[in-house]
Simulated scan of single mutants.
Amino acid sequence: MTDSPEEPNPYTAGLEHKPQRDDTFYYTTVVFLVEGTLFRVPRHPFIDGSDVFRQMFQLPVPDGVEADGCSDGRPLRLEFIQQNDFKQLLKVLFPHHSQPQKSSPKTFAEWRSVLKLSSMWEFESVKKLAVDHIGTMQIDPIDKIGLARDYDVQEWLVPALNELAKRKEPIGMKDADKLGMELALKVAAVRESVMSSYSGYPLQIGERQAGHIDFTNAIETMLTTLENS
């Protein structure tokens, strides 16, 4: 039994050679399912920018089986991902596809979504962009410390702890709930123990007038002690 001959394509009839796909401007799409909503986008930014997706798309697919993400009927399901977080990431990956006034994240919450997913999926260049944008915003040091620890943004940790140590209000239970009791107690100890000479007389940090004092060295020592304990 012989195979049936391939049906001629009337749109390419008469061409000397079979059409080739351009290396740059031929996009393969992928369909994602996030919280009940389908997103169909070009696949190449996920392959180029994320080790996680690159490895996922390189997994072999059995013959005769549709790959996840190839159609609306077989989308790539992103479990436990919030639709709004995913939209913010897509705004960065495809800035010209959204409405001009919504072409990129604007608020802290939106950039936090980008930081969250870019960290999870190892979009290194996107993560750097999120870090740069959030770094220019006025954020509560407690929140910034949490982000630094959750998403491994080491350049934020010491400055944010330093800002917290300068704060007039003492470290309280709400702070401890967010920081963890051990770190909260260590920061409180730094605040209370560091002495500084100011205006010709010693100033006890416990007086809560520490806005002019740099706690960086004490904080770095404290963090080193925590790492080695």
Score class of each variant (00 low, 15 high):
Leu147Phe: 09
Asp143Tyr: 00
Gln154Thr: 12
Asp152Val: 08
Val131Ile: 15
Ile139Tyr: 05
Met120Asp: 00
Pro10Tyr: 01
Lys144Phe: 04
Ser119Thr: 14
Ile81His: 05
Val92Ile: 15
Phe32Leu: 09
Phe215Thr: 03
Ala67Ser: 14
Lys106Met: 05
Gly172Asn: 14
Met195Trp: 15
Ala210Val: 07
Phe25Arg: 09
Leu129Lys: 15
Val92His: 09
Gln82Ala: 11
Glu122Lys: 14
Pro62His: 02
Leu183Ile: 09
Arg191Val: 05
Pro141Leu: 08
Val114Asp: 03
Ala160Met: 03
Glu16Tyr: 01
Arg77Gln: 15
Ile171Thr: 11
Glu122Ala: 15
Gly49Leu: 03
Gly64Val: 04
Ala176His: 00
Glu110Arg: 02
Phe46Lys: 07
Lys168Met: 07
Gly36Trp: 04
Leu161Pro: 04
Glu163Phe: 06
Met137Asn: 05
Val30Ala: 07
Arg43Pro: 00
Ile81Trp: 00
Pro62Ser: 09
Ala148Met: 06
Asn9Asp: 15
Tyr27Ile: 10
Ala109Phe: 00
Gly49His: 01
Leu76His: 14
Ser113Leu: 02
Asp72Phe: 00
Arg40Val: 11
Ser50Ile: 10
Gln82Asn: 12
Arg167Trp: 03
Gly73Cys: 01
Ala188Cys: 09
Glu192Asp: 11
Asp68Thr: 06
Met137His: 00
Gln55Asn: 15
Leu223Ala: 02
Asp23Tyr: 05
Ser118Thr: 14
Tyr27Cys: 10
Val158Ala: 08
Pro10Phe: 12
Val41Thr: 12
Met137Trp: 01
Ser125Glu: 14
Glu122Ser: 14
Arg149Cys: 01
Ile219Glu: 04
Pro100Arg: 10
Thr2Cys: 07
Lys127Glu: 06
Leu76Ile: 04
Gln101Ile: 06
Ala184Thr: 08
Ala176Thr: 09
Ala109Val: 06
Asp214Cys: 10
Asn9Phe: 05
Gln138Ser: 12
Ala13Arg: 09
Lys128Trp: 06
Gln154Phe: 07
Trp121Asn: 12
Pro5Phe: 13
Val31Gln: 08
Lys144Cys: 08
Leu15Val: 01
Glu35Lys: 11
Ser113Cys: 11
Glu163Trp: 03
